[in-house]
Design a binder for these strands. Structure first.
Lengths: 345, 345
DNA sequence: AATAGTATTGCAAATGTTTTCATAAAATAG
DNA sequence: CTATTTTATGAAAACATTTGCAATACTATT
């Protein structure tokens, strides 16, 4: 009945208790078919009795995979990343991998150090968001020779494997919808594009459509807002309180759009009668808003799942070479955009 | 110019290149003050040239801490957990720890296996959400002798260290507010309470106030809804489309409340004139909603930060024994609740 | 110039596993 | 029954580090 719980229970302790050698214990875990069922039973009993837990650090030292994947995101607390992370996590979990996670707060220098830390832990694979990374980061990954995937943006010439959608097209679709509806006085609200290729691409896509249609967005309607309902709302308020206001606002993502919606309600503007609003993303709550948000759907869960799936399979050797996967996006017309009275009628 | 990048760059390679022994290289990392500055310089140069990255797995084998903390949450894709995770992550990051994360989807059996996996990786500490865990889980943690913290619920007699708030009181405050405002026809909407002590406690708190005030909630107004805007909206619609409907609905969290708000708008009910709604949580967007959501504020970021802080300090030995920290909560009165016409006027 | 101390370095053991190789025991074939 | 194959096990090397101890090279003291 001596309770030697903390007395270091390693493979030797198990071997001793089961009266076998450590080789047999190890084998019993890794190649059970090679050990006598009776012996296996004894070992299992000893393991249970002692509460033995294998030490992956020791295993990792033999070139055996660590069973971990490093995931670096700009921020976790972000509707869309939370969704991607969840899907990614579920997916790699199915393959037995565990996730090391960290956020860099849109600081590429921090991203690099996080990556280094992950590498010290000998992660078997790496996942990053987007394609904006420092040269240091890219070369670190390349020199390491472990599978890595960039999530969110599709690019046929990406330096890393990628699973994502065409963000330029997303911006394009959103703007085109507004133009098709006859809007010409259009406001733009996007997050800061520095080191954020997703935002930049969407913005460029939108701009190209607008330019093509001969529409120019006056500077006071072209606003930058951090990813935050509150700040988007404030920024929108500034535009909407004016007498001369746009007939439509195109938002870089659905959270910003929600902020605009709240601002509109605050100003007693009816949506979509007095103001059209379109988002990008189609976040979880977007279809349930009242009125439902018109937006461009980027399949976050699918992207996360596919990224996890492909990274896992690259690690275990089922896949080789860089993978580049693009997920379809589509305009989701709901109830926040309305046709704008056209003169030609 | 021979590019031997993949030729296994370990501490020996560095030692060879710097023309010193591996001991010196190791020391140069761990006790730099013990090695000659000139030698250190040579070593640094070799490290840089070779792109050497230390192997934490090998270090961990010496009883040196792995530098990782295991975090298990019910789900990542959840406004409130995302917030907690972010704060927790930032906080432990400041102490140099890396997070291993996994979700169990409210399945306590999965929680147990995730924990075992973390232990195989020799995490230095463990963080869980809430107090509902299997006995297996509890005894596993206790026998392991590593610091662990339960996040979200405060309980003076908790089996693990805990950092959280009083959820019973949260339910209590919300219900009391409604009662104070003169409501007697009150609906309740809570997530499933099985294996979810937060929801259970809040519900009990609310119920006790209502019972105390002689109010009973008819079954058709006492609804259970998963954590989802869409499902909460649907459920609320069923109540609100009826002619006989409650004057107020108390929601187990702000996401459910948002669903109710959307349902109300769909039914053309004015908030708060026709229906009062109160949430619990005070999520990031709650104050910006139109009208702003009246709710009970649980300081998610603070809880996450404190939990990370205390766990880290317990690991490095600055703190010992179980810590139990409670964070203040408060009723936040905004604009979704209104006084209900009282007969005594 | 000899002695004692101090700064710097290397050797080798230790950490907890896996795996190759050798060996012993059991089963099968002839 | 012996020879051969198969099954089951153990011994020891390997993995990439850290660290206690010993050895060497300097520096300061008298």
């Amino acid at each position: 009945m001596t309770d030697n719980k903390l007395n270091k229970v390693d493979i030797f302790a198990v071997a001793k208790r089961a009266k076998v050698s450590i080789s047999t214990v190890s084998r019993s875990f890794n190649h059970p078919e090679l050990v006598n069922p009776a012996t296996r039973k004894k070992i299992d009993a000893a393991v249970r009795k002692l509460g033995y837990i294998r030490n992956r650090a020791a295993q990792t030292m033999h070139g055996i995979r660590s069973g971990t994947i490093g995931l670096v995101v700009p921020t976790i607390d972000h509707a869309i990343f939370a969704e991607v992370i969840q899907a990614f996590s579920d997916s790699v979990d199915d393959h037995g991998f565990t996730i090391l996670i960290a956020s860099h707060g849109y600081d590429l220098q921090r991203e690099y150090s996080v990556l280094r830390k992950f590498l010290e832990h000998r992660v078997d694979g790496l996942a990053l968001i987007g394609e904006d990374h420092s040269e240091e980061t890219y070369s670190l990954i390349e020199r390491q020779g472990i599978p890595a995937v960039s999530i969110w943006n599709y690019n046929a010439a990406s330096r890393l494997s990628c699973v994502g959608a065409d963000n330029t097209k997303a911006g394009w679709l959103a703007a085109q919808h507004l133009v098709d509806l006859g809007h010409r006085d259009i406001g733009l609200m996007f997050p800061t594009a520095t080191d954020n290729d997703r935002a930049r691409d969407r913005r460029n896509g939108a701009q190209s459509v607008l330019s093509g249609a001969g529409i120019s967005v006056p500077p006071q309607w072209d606003i930058e807002s951090p990813y935050s309902i509150a700040e988007a709302k404030d920024a929108a308020l500034k535009i909407l309180e004016n007498t001369h206001r746009p007939t439509a606002i195109l938002c870089g993502n659905d959270v910003l759009a929600l902020g605009v919606l709240y601002a509109a309600r605050r100003c007693n503007l009816r949506i979509p009668d007095d103001l059209s609003v379109i988002g990008i993303g189609d976040f979880k709550g977007s279809k349930d808003m009242e009125p439902g948000l018109t937006t461009v759907r980027l399949p976050a869960r699918k992207i996360g799942r596919l990224a996890g799936e492909h990274l896992s399979r690259s690690i275990i050797g089922e896949l080789s070479g860089p993978q580049r996967i693009t997920c379809d996006i589509e305009l989701i017309v709901r109830n926040t955009c309305q046709r704008q009275g056209v003169d030609t009628d």
